[in-house]
């Protein structure tokens, strides 16, 4: 069983939901990421989504785009993202790490070289925002052959047919983007999410993590009651952005937010 499947199964048995933070590798500096990952684990997170910086993050809002820009200023890359994950794994063998990004850096490395490198780095899942199942056959096969879970996105406008497609192509979990629009935008409509989750559940048995629009402990608790996991990204990166001159403080504020979410979700 993959590390992701085992994590979601253990959570399910204890009646808890996964807390899944997203940070961009190398934001705001390459040496910030690894200690941040360990600190997040101590704060009680279950899975870490590690963003691969990309020059043209079309599906992301301004907050995550600026995170990519800060990382790229320090020459962060897919290779160096994998190197950080490798370092992380040296002292943490239990927290699943999911790479999240756009397909072009992966194409530039080559699908097979990437799959091999991800396996060596002991990566658990890969979520490629702009690689829908229609275009993903080759990449999915290479990842699955190495026990790496391909993670797919679902949107409010995904049809039954498309949910079934994601269910067939994906493993580990499905990531439901609970708002139309880009990351970090708008407000969450709980009733909408609930009815959509019913439709998703009818078409897949994979765990469903919900992201986009989770800002604080209260929204995390609400979202946790609907899905199997809660993804939080822009709200964490905003903490980095607000404390660029004091990164220790950024780290402390991120940890505090995650601890508060963890408590709200577990109670």
């Amino acid at each position: 069983m993959s590390r992701l499947a085992a994590t979601f199964e253990a959570l399910s048995k204890s009646g808890r939901k996964a807390l899944v933070p997203f940070i961009t590798a190398g934001d705001p500096r390459p040496d910030f990421t690894l200690p941040m990952m360990h600190a997040m684990v101590e704060a009680g997170v279950d899975v870490i989504e590690l963003g691969i910086p990309f020059s043209d993050p079309m599906a992301d809002g301004p907050v995550i785009q600026r995170a990519s820009e800060r990382a790229l200023e320090h020459k962060m890359s897919l290779r160096r993202t994998l190197a950080i994950a490798t370092e992380f794994r040296k002292t943490n063998q239990h927290t699943p790490v999911v790479l999240m990004g756009y397909v072009n850096p992966i194409e530039a490395m080559g699908y097979e070289d990437f799959a091999n490198a991800a396996q060596r780095a002991d990566i658990d899942g890969v979520l490629t925002v702009d690689l829908p199942p229609e275009e993903a056959d080759e990449c999915v096969a290479l990842l699955k052959a190495r026990d790496i879970d391909p993670i797919f996105l679902l949107a409010p406008n995904s049809t039954d047919e498309r949910i079934k497609k994601m269910d067939a192509a994906g493993s580990g979990y499905l990531y439901y983007v609970s708002l139309k629009g880009v990351t970090g935008a708008g407000h969450l409509d709980v009733a909408d999410v609930e009815s959509k989750l019913n439709q998703i559940r009818a078409n897949t048995r994979l765990p469903v993590a919900i992201g986009f629009g989770v800002k604080d402990a209260q929204t995390a608790k609400t979202v946790a009651s609907l899905g199997d996991g809660v993804v939080i990204g822009s709200a964490l990166i905003s903490k980095i952005e607000a404390n660029l001159d004091d990164l220790e403080r950024a780290k402390k504020e991120i940890v505090e937010l995650l601890v508060a979410m963890r408590q709200a979700m577990d109670n």
Binding site: P132, E135, F152
Partner: peptide
Amino acid sequence: GGMFVAETLMLP
């Protein structure tokens, strides 16, 4: 060519 887009854009 192809359709390399995020899921939100697939339906549109």
